[in-house]
Design a protein around this nucleic acid. Sequence first.
DNA 1: CATTTCGTTGGACAGACCGTACATCCAATT
DNA 2: AATTGGATGTACGGTCTGTCCAACGAAATG
Lengths: 193, 193
Amino acid sequence: MSPRGYHSEKRQTAADETRRRILETARRVLAGRGVPQLTIDSVAAQADVSRQTVYNAFGSKSGLLEALCDHLAERGRIDRIAAAFTAPDGTDAITLFLTAFYKFWATDRTVTRRLRGLATLDKDLDAVIKARNARQRQGFAALLDRFPDLDTSGRDREQTLDLLCALGSFETFDTLDGQAALAVTAALAVLRQ
Amino acid sequence: MSPRGYHSEKRQTAADETRRRILETARRVLAGRGVPQLTIDSVAAQADVSRQTVYNAFGSKSGLLEALCDHLAERGRIDRIAAAFTAPDGTDAITLFLTAFYKFWATDRTVTRRLRGLATLDKDLDAVIKARNARQRQGFAALLDRFPDLDTSGRDREQTLDLLCALGSFETFDTLDGQAALAVTAALAVLRQ
DNA sequence: CATTTCGTTGGACAGACCGTACATCCAATT
DNA sequence: AATTGGATGTACGGTCTGTCCAACGAAATG
């Protein structure tokens, strides 16, 4: 703590800029073909930054990956899901919700796949991704609340949510090759049956 | 190559036994809670074997993981899918096929999840898993061939296969918490709609 | 019995990577 | 002019992979 705060604008923005440059580099590295060579060394070098700077900005490799998750959320305009909650029609709402996620993942498909793979080895990153999945489930739940007539299957509510989350998961997006329309029809079939 | 073959039974079975012990240890390590500490060192130590022996048996860490995939296939009785191809009814066939996979994955759920995560970082392992997914798709395709009336959706055949693969994927199994019945009803809903 | 073979062992080594510490430089701030 | 904070460079310890090699011992062969 400084006795007299050195609040600075130029310094802050400069630091943010390097931080951002590092994140972009990490994203580019993970997006490349072949096995991702995501080492602090290579990211730092490609971002034209010293290794120490990466640690200053993110603390650790885990920290970098977590920050990258948020970075991807911005890039992929995950905020598009907001439109789903103002839709007047239930079917439209589900459609908007699912397609928002599919567009989001399509933005950085390879990076997302690898990030989720890396979460297997990283407790912190795993927590971030689990939280994200949980929020998606809450979104589906909110839509089911708003449109009670949407689910005419007579199934248990939690089970319906399980199915929707499965169809809306990144992995399903990935195996469906991004065909959002396919996921939407499947979801509607599951809800109606 | 030996000028005069030293074909041995005792040696062979002994080597197979240590190989098997290493695989079981690796499986146990990957099944443990927390971040998996799957290092050659720890596996070797827990299997009461020298590190060199692991390399003799599997060549590399990738080799060990690939072998573990096959090991899991045996343990999980993946051969149960055979029953699906002799079923007289299409619906039964799909049900048997899907539940065989779900039982398979339920056998070593955590291990499979981590193995698939590790495939992100390992080209060889990734190839093994991709091949396995492809075989599942061929299985679904064979069922659609045998029972042409099964798919009344009028959808493109490849798209129907995409959806079935998505529902039959390990990741969907994982998010559905192993509820095979749920996946089956979803698959049937998708086929009928 | 003598010899060959093979799986196994133990130690040593290079190379990659993570994370930390520290002394230093420079530009922005006061 | 003095201070502060971000960035740099270097160095070090630790972990893990993969390879090499000398050696041991039990099984197989003649």
